[in-house]
Design a protein around this nucleic acid. Sequence first.
RNA 1: GGGUGUAUAGCUCAGUUGGCUAGAGCGUUACGUUGACAUCGUAGAGGUCGGUGGUUCGAGCCCACUUACACCCACCA
Length: 858
Amino acid sequence: MTINPDDLYKFQEDNGYFKPNSESGKPTFTIMIPPPNITGQLHLGHAFTMTMQDIIIRYKRMVGFDCLLLPGTDHAAIATQMIVEKQLAEKGIYRREIGRAKFLDYVWQWKAECAGNITKQLRRLGYSSDWSRERFTMDDGMSDAVKEAFVRLYNDGLIYKAKRLVNWDPVMLTSVSDLEVLMKETAGSMWHIRYDIDGSDESIIVATTRPETMLGDSGVAVNPNDERFKHLIGKKAILPIIGRKIEIVGDDYADMTKGTGAVKITPAHDFNDFEVGKRHNLPVMNIFTETAKIDVKNIPDANDFVRSLDGMDRFEARKVIVEKLQELGNLVKIEPYTHQVPHAERGGAVIEPRLTEQWYCDVSEMAKKAIEFVKTGKIKFVPKMWENTFFSWLENIQPWCISRQLWWGHQIPAYYTDDGKIFVAKSLEEAQKMAGDGVHLTQDEDSLDTWFSSGLWPMSTLGWPNVEAPDYKHYFPTSTLITGFDIIFFWVARMIMMSIYFTGKAPFDTVVLHGLVRDEHGQKMSKTKGNVINPLELIDEFGIDAVRWTICTLSGQGRDMNFGRSLVENGRKFITKLRNAVNFWEQKGVKDAIVFDKTKSVASTNWILDKMNSAIDVAKNAIENYRYDEYAQTLYHFVWDDFCDNFIELSKSEIDGENGAIILATAKVVIQNILKMLQPVIPFVSAELYEELGFGRACDFIHESYAEKVQIDTSNTSDIDWMLSVISAIRNVRAENKIGFKTLLNIAFKSMPEGAKSYIDIIANHTNTKLSDESSDMISVVVDEATTVLIALPSANKDEAISKAKIELQEVEKRILSLEAQIAKMEGKAPAQVIEDRRKSLSDAMAKKSQLTEIIGG
RNA sequence: GGGUGUAUAGCUCAGUUGGCUAGAGCGUUACGUUGACAUCGUAGAGGUCGGUGGUUCGAGCCCACUUACACCCACCA
């Protein structure tokens, strides 16, 4: 019988298996989904983030927490608006033509479709979240929280409006924050232009990468300490083409080593120039339209040539102006020049600094608090190194430009009277009350940065600003945030700041950051490279459990993760191995095994229980520390090596004997615990096997208790380790056909620990059939893996054995010398235990040496 | 320019506070098995732990310098 994961998931979802129970009295453990953007499909990175969360949540459920995993999606203002605009444009529909309301209808349509897709995909991942609490960053509750936050911050004086230079996206026609600007190395040119000095035959040469901005030049800056230009400070330069007289100012901003040492100042189109202009009271001339085309109406001294440029694109204008400068003889030099040019993160347009009025949020105090919370350990980053990144950003934080000229998003809750008075309120009604009856109010057209609402996510999803909301009271603050490091500033920092500001509490106590998912050779996945892996295709091909297992094995230290199909194949192999192992025990009747009684044991059952106990310890410790890789590895080795390769193999010889019942009962317990440890990672296969073996219904497995250790007598477990090594040696020797079984056993018996002698029959049983017809008067070597080499020397291969022994003897002697030297040096300096260990190694080596000598000599 | 991370076997990576002869998976070689195993098992080969110097009884791990790669922040002269 196999269980379809999607069916099991649906059944569990429909019957509330993923819902928390605040009445349970258990401690809470809460994870908020980093809401995926409604811009398309989930990618592999999402699959990692979500699986990591789900593993923790499923684990915590089993160890006794009341767990809430809250799902949702993000409206992703600019990205979504861009996608919908593009789609509509393909149909010949344009945003500006249909107007805001109509356009938003289209976006909501898209949202419904896209969010539906995403949530479907999350379900396929096995994401055990409470869907009844699903949220969207623009749903009513969220909108209310956003307005509340805005109004409060405004009333507290932290949100304000200001006219400043912003990063302007001339394609999307909106401001973007500093974080949304990507600097891209771009090949360009450096143009050296000569500006003549007014009333003198001197001239000054400025270098620029953007000659077109000279139309807005209102000064030239030189360094006041620069001997070359010092005497020009206070004089005027004549702007070529226009003839405008602009001031030459002395300012430290001018770097004597860069360019020509003289820099043209265009306050309206460069952040640094803007500052210089302010310091020297230089006029600000905005020469571009919002689409970055030349705008002549702001150039008071425009001549015919300049007027001919009106409406021309900035890059086209650049060419024309350069030609003109050349014609006029003012162009001194053109050098090829590679520099960093700002591009919009979304859409990729070249950013144009632009003087506009925008809303800002002063986050400097919040940033200080956020730093303090992390420094005092109220919030912990995993891995810790990210704390430094976090600090360095917050320490240099700038006012946050929160307004966007987009339609899709939270419209800013500010209302204007016709004469420009501002009322900030949660609704028009409230604003109206403030403004007085009969005053005409219009709402601000702008919307808020997406991250303003996501910054409130951990609170608003639980009911904030209603601090009496049951969910808020019970589940806030949340426990762990798991997300990619790339949104540490955008999102993590904002959530921390907002939460502390509004609630005084950290929104979560732990932030787990993972790296980028790359292909199996560490290359970034990209469409152009064609190495993108679609998680859904993987699920179709390998099954969700194999995919989740693979994700678990790769999620460890917060580094980038290399993901390849072959790894998922390995995951599938592991799951097959597990199924087969269970199958073996089923055939032996494990389902009807007697009740496990820890007082009834044999060596092999104690041994496997001992291994299981330590696996449980290691695994729990690993997962508690978000070491998914270690968790998976521990289980992998326990299941494959200990349980399958050894325990099953050992049991084969005993299962039909008098101890069969004990072995079966033990196997049952071990399997149950294995499945429990695997449930968080491979919930579907484990649940299926759980039901198959009669432990209970598959759907209920999610609420089982976690694996627990079994107290056992461990005094004889090392004998089994010894025995296993003998068995493997026998197999190997048999493979080499060099020794008879009886001879071998005799030798083995001589070196066997007392306690192990009683198991000699097991060895005989286990190996007998395979060795019975080997000729027994032969030769050679059995390795006791612990320390020694046992060597038998029947005549035929004597020489070979001796020469092998000689080689080994050399190594042993070297080792003895080295150990002796070490011990001598350590004397009185190293801890006693370490010296003791060395002494033991030494005596083992000595023993080996005497054995080898005997062989060689005899 | 400022910062962070990484460098360990052919490949992808573990290696926790310094402690015995540095590990895993894949790949590879040999042999065996196909009676739980869509295979599996056993064994072997393969590493001067990027380099140099230092601290230490002892360094893959700590310190200094250095090389290469990746990423982040700042920067349109």
